[in-house]
């Protein structure tokens, strides 16, 4: 299997998720609350993604798009809705619970997948200018 194959990349992502379960899993909402471990992890995620994008940024002279103010406002509201949705479920530790086989996490992921698929199908794809 080639290194660029999507299944290979998905498997690599699964290995990282399983490695994150070893210290007890990560509550990603805890990063927003300022807990140290999750905050360091989130900052390192941003740094790693920036490292991967650095070559593309330099080669293609890619510029960051400037979204419209309405788009920025809606992104803010969608982010707040995501945090509140995790609060409805009771924890931000949805992904580790899904991997461990919790029925609540499976129901959360299933309803999220269905509603996201319907929303993405029914709404026009909004791309920043």
């Amino acid at each position: 299997m080639r290194r660029e194959h999507p299944l290979w990349r998905g498997f690599w992502l699964a290995c990282l998720w399983a490695a994150l379960l070893l210290p007890g899993g990560v509550d990603w909402l805890a990063a927003y609350r300022g807990e140290r471990y999750a905050l360091i992890l989130a900052a390192a995620v941003a740094a790693g993604a920036g490292l991967a994008a650095l070559i593309a940024l330099l080669r293609r002279r890619q510029r960051m798009t400037r979204p419209r103010p309405m788009r920025m406002l809606t992104c803010f509201l969608y982010g707040a809705a995501m945090a509140l949705a995790c609060g409805m479920a009771g924890t931000g530790r949805i992904l580790p619970a899904l991997l461990e086989g919790s029925t609540g996490a499976c129901a959360f992921a299933g309803t999220a997948a269905v509603s996201a698929c319907l929303t993405a199908r029914l709404t026009r794809q909004e791309v920043d200018a």
Partner: peptide, 30 residues
Amino acid sequence: GGAVFGVAVALAGFTPLTAFAGVSGRHGAS
């Protein structure tokens, strides 16, 4: 919560985790 989360992810294009990684991308402002 799953229903609200799915709608918000589909409209925003980010999850609370991937938003950290998306900061360095082209749609970093979003």
